[in-house]
Design a protein around this nucleic acid. Sequence first.
DNA 1: CTAAAAACAGGACGATCACCCTGTTTTGGA
DNA 2: TCCAAAACAGGGTGATCGTCCTGTTTTTAG
Lengths: 230, 230
Amino acid sequence: MSAEVAKRPGSMRKKRTNDPQGMRCRVLDVAEDCFQARGYHASSLGDLMAAAGVTGGALHHHFPTKKALALAVIEERVAAAVRQTWIEPVRAAPSAREGVRAVFETLAAALEQQGYVRGCPLNNLAHELSFADPDFRIALADIFAGWRRAIADKVRADQEAGGEGGTDPDRFAALTVAAYSGAMSMAKTAQDAGVLRECLAGLERVEPSPSQNGPPARRRRRVLRQQPIR
Amino acid sequence: MSAEVAKRPGSMRKKRTNDPQGMRCRVLDVAEDCFQARGYHASSLGDLMAAAGVTGGALHHHFPTKKALALAVIEERVAAAVRQTWIEPVRAAPSAREGVRAVFETLAAALEQQGYVRGCPLNNLAHELSFADPDFRIALADIFAGWRRAIADKVRADQEAGGEGGTDPDRFAALTVAAYSGAMSMAKTAQDAGVLRECLAGLERVEPSPSQNGPPARRRRRVLRQQPIR
DNA sequence: CTAAAAACAGGACGATCACCCTGTTTTGGA
DNA sequence: TCCAAAACAGGGTGATCGTCCTGTTTTTAG
């Protein structure tokens, strides 16, 4: 592929500067990228070493096995990606629904101008690794759980602040994460981000809640439509 | 794993009975199972040969390459699984919404008593293969498209029959497929099918449409219940 | 300054893996 | 009946992969 990627400029011959953090980070960068693009099993350590400009010895020093490397990618990079792409924007949004909408639209727009769809980092690895290996599975499940919890907590916060009617927080969170994950799966397979917008449109019509809510409201006033049974 | 799987009883030594269809089917069975459980790249042809009781020559005769085998699994088995699990039940249901609900509940119940969650066959392969290889991608995208089309067509049929208000058929189909795919992804990662029920509950609150909506059953007798369109 | 530990280099090794090739047996049509 | 093609058997091969091992260089602690 691209000839020289890194290798540190190191002016002249000889002399080496140890930079364990930097090297570890470079390996993680390349591994994250390669695992997303080709998958875990289809990425060889030789590819990664070449792409990162790292020798076998160095790689083995920081990550004893390929599995350890992937686990680090999941726990450090994938978890961070979900946090930064989903959790923080939703927390910062004026409401859960608005946050979800903003994330969907931001992502869709980014993918459309990117020209290709690589899929959701979490789901990509989850599908390939979660059933075969318990360690991978648990690490990935934790990320899913944190993602859902963040959305559900936001709904609860909205409710305590007066907004958002009887929406079940956990149910809304599960559906949101599922809809996004599935939409990304389709977008990746079709190489078209349009389905993200379709799913968002559908999501926004979920249980518009008995209280406020602009144009698409009205009705929903019957007698006792939903018992507090939950 | 399990010692002897097949190998044809063949009473005594000598004598062979050619059964190209049967052998092809056995290979496909094993490949489908193995690809779902371990993934494409993690399944070696040696594993498949041993599990199916097939020699290298026979395997190579029916499927020249591993990719050809996977393509056959996708086009014949995965497509059939989606047809049988989703498309036919939804078509046969009294309405799109009821069909979707029935499929979700059937699947959730089956997974719960199965004890483990292997994930959606289509999504499993789509995540691992669709971005890296165009041939795989197109084959998988076609299945997704057929799945969505079947649901959308059912909604349209409901509308022409008088039921189902202003629900956008394509939007509803996209959200349904996405929610199911994503829910299965989470269920597989958490090894818990409960999230399927949560997502179904959320899905059923999508755009209940300006017309009817109440206890989920009853009704459906109106004037022209089901046109002979079939 | 010195010694030990950490960081890195680079090659070797055994184990697969997917594919191919050369035979042998079975089958169906002429 | 005969023969060509299909169906199947089974071993071989080159490539590749993940891991490990032996050195060398840099950093750090005392």
